[in-house]
Design a protein around this nucleic acid. Sequence first.
DNA 1: AGTTGACCAACGAACGATCGTTCGTTAACC
DNA 2: GGTTAACGAACGATCGTTCGTTGGTCAACT
Lengths: 186, 186
Amino acid sequence: MTTRAVRSRDDVVRTAGKLFAERGYHGTSMRDLAAELGLLGSSLYSHISSKEDLLVEVVERGADLFQSSAEAALATSGTAASRLKALVAGHVDVVLDHLDEVRTFLNEAGVLDEVHRSRVLAARDRYEASYREVLSEMKVADPKLAAIFLLSILNALERWYRPTGSLQRQDLVDEILGFALNGIRR
Amino acid sequence: MTTRAVRSRDDVVRTAGKLFAERGYHGTSMRDLAAELGLLGSSLYSHISSKEDLLVEVVERGADLFQSSAEAALATSGTAASRLKALVAGHVDVVLDHLDEVRTFLNEAGVLDEVHRSRVLAARDRYEASYREVLSEMKVADPKLAAIFLLSILNALERWYRPTGSLQRQDLVDEILGFALNGIRR
DNA sequence: AGTTGACCAACGAACGATCGTTCGTTAACC
DNA sequence: GGTTAACGAACGATCGTTCGTTGGTCAACT
């Protein structure tokens, strides 16, 4: 006889994050998600109330991770440069340790309804503002643009970096900081 | 009496690019696409043979644009630094002048079947190789990583830059080049 | 220790809606 | 008058979701 798979709500949300990250929200059916958990589609509704709610939860997990990371980095004492380093190191940690939630947060937020989407957009702007402020303290000529460029590099990590390569996490942080501070002339 | 909308194949492909860019491939139905053109869903098949073929065509248009741009930039005479500038300026032109195809190329290529996806991936790598080579000529310490970082900034333009702001196209190119060459210290 | 019963999560059939696509028909244009 | 493209009904498949049923777990009680 075969045993029934029994899963927790957290299992469902985490697996949804994985599939949303890999195939996108519209590319993932509830039956796909259930199959990944060893369930039938209808069984998911013992844990969650709708597919859209699942997306909201995954995206908000991503948003919270970045927010917590930024708060911790800004709370550190020291120079503005050291706080920038903490921001970057924190960002890299969030991306590498929570890749699925991050990818869903970055790529699928546009699917959310107006209310949730604007909330996520606001969170993203607050996060970017952390970078702008630190860069301002560092007397950077154009903190707004510098923040965009640095975050472009950081957010793109999701698309290419995999820890299997020779580039270790701390080296990655140093390389990004080196590039942001001095450009290619190093 | 009402006249019937008559469209060309190119109208269909261009509009598909617009919707794929805005809503994603799986988020766009053939009836959505037809409605945007003032047609019924079935009428599309007078012009194209399948939804997937539409995606292939849009993505390949994006790939071709970047390839042509890189070839033109590399064909210019002058220093490696001037060729890098031509690469960056060309990339900015492609993104700003063909936003829909670029967004679909960057974000929806993963939906393609294995054959087309690997072809697009190869094209992307050849494009990145152009940057690696020029950066190598410039004696950059780590051309591979520098190319990734620079392209991260360039590809992210699709997500935030809109020409309505105060930042003009040529200024944008200069800012990106300045950041890539010298970092935030300028 | 054994029995009972409430609870809970998964099952499985079924719903209406929408998906991509087909095809015979219709109408506008050279 | 022949060609071409849009129409409009219809196809089977799949979508998200509902709901009555089933079976396993575990605490309470004898």
